[in-house]
C-alpha cells in the first residue's frame, strides 16, 4: 500500500511539473543527492550541514521546553490549585502561533548578544512547549481515581504513588508530548530561519535559493530534507514509545 502511495505521489508530481514550473522529481532527486554531501556554491554548505544546524537549534530549544512542560504537566495534574492557575494561562497562550512571537522576541531579546539565535530558540520553545504540556497534563490527569484511592488507603507515601501509579500512566502522555512538540518545533524553526538571517539552516537555505533565483530544484530539495528529517524524527520516537512501553 505504501509503495502505491509513493508511486501515486510521484505520478501527481510529474503531472504538476508538466503544467507548472515545478521541477520534475528526477531533477529534484539529483539535486538533493548532490547537495547532500557537496556544498552548494552560493552558501558554500551542504544540505546535511544546514539540516544539522536547524536540528541543533530545535533539539536545544525542545529540550528546554520539555524539561519545563513535563514536570509542570504532571504536577498540575495532581494539584488542583496549581491546575487552576496554570491551565487558563496555557489555554490563553496556546492558540498564538509560534511565528506570531517573532517580532516580539526580537524586541525582548534585543539587548542580548545573538538576538537572532536566542529568538529562534525561543520561538521553537513556544512551539514545542504547549503541545507537550497539554499531552502530559491530559494523560496524567486521567490516572484512574480508584488506583489513587487504593494507594492512599494503603497509606503509600506520596513519593511511591507518584513513581508507581502516576508516572507509568503519564508516560504515554510524555512520549506523545515529546513527539508532537518536536514536530511543531521543527516546523517553527524552518519558518523562523526564513524570517531572520541565521547564516545556516534549512529555512535560510531555501530563502537564499529563492532570492538568488533560478533554483527551484534546490528549493524543493531543501523542502524534501525538511520532510525526511520530520519523518525520521516521528518514526524514531514512535519506535522509542514501543520500546519504552512494550505493553501498548
Amino acid at each position: 500500500m505504501r509503495l502505491k502511495g509513493a508511486i501515486l505521489l510521484i505520478f501527481l508530481w510529474y503531472l504538476v511539473s508538466a503544467i507548472t514550473e515545478l521541477p520534475h522529481p528526477h531533477e529534484v532527486a539529483e539535486t538533493f543527492f548532490i547537495l547532500l554531501f557537496n556544498s552548494e556554491p552560493v552558501l558554500g554548505k551542504t544540505l546535511v550541514q544546514h539540516a544539522a544546524a536547524s536540528l541543533l537549534r530545535v533539539l536545544t530549544a525542545s529540550l528546554l521546553a520539555f524539561s519545563i512542560a513535563i514536570p509542570l504537566g504532571i504536577v498540575s495534574a495532581l494539584n488542583r490549585t496549581l491546575a487552576e492557575v496554570v491551565t487558563p494561562m496555557v489555554e490563553a497562550l496556546r492558540p498564538i502561533p509560534p511565528l506570531a512571537w517573532i517580532p516580539l522576541a526580537y524586541v525582548i531579546f534585543a539587548p542580548l548578544p545573538n538576538t537572532v539565535q536566542v529568538s529562534q530558540i525561543f520561538i521553537v520553545f513556544v512551539g514545542a512547549f504547549f503541545p507537550c504540556f497539554v499531552s502530559v497534563f491530559d494523560y496524567s490527569r486521567n490516572v484512574p481515581e480508584e488506583l489513587l484511592e487504593m494507594a492512599r488507603v494503603f497509606k503509600a507515601p506520596e513519593r511511591l504513588i507518584l513513581r508507581d501509579v502516576v508516572l507509568p500512566h503519564s508516560l504515554q502522555g510524555v512520549l506523545s508530548g515529546i513527539r508532537i512538540g518536536l514536530g511543531v518545533g521543527w516546523m517553527s524553526i524552518i519558518a523562523a530561519e526564513m524570517i531572520a538571517t541565521s547564516g545556516e539552516g534549512l529555512g535560510y537555505f531555501i530563502l537564499v535559493m529563492y532570492e538568488v533565483g533560478g533554483r527551484t530544484a534546490e528549493i524543493v530539495a531543501g523542502m524534501a530534507m525538511i520532510g525526511v528529517i520530520g519523518y525520521l524524527m516521528n518514526t524514531l520516537l514512535l519506535k522509542a514509545e514501543r520500546l519504552v512501553m512494550p505493553w501498548r
Binding site: T46, A53, L56, L232
Partner: peptide, 15 residues
C-alpha cells in the same frame, strides 16, 4: 531502527 539511528548520527556529526 539502527539504520535510522545511524542516519541521525551522521546528521548530528555536522553539528
Amino acid at each position: 531502527l539502527v539504520a535510522i539511528a545511524v542516519t541521525l548520527a551522521i546528521l548530528l556529526a555536522g553539528c
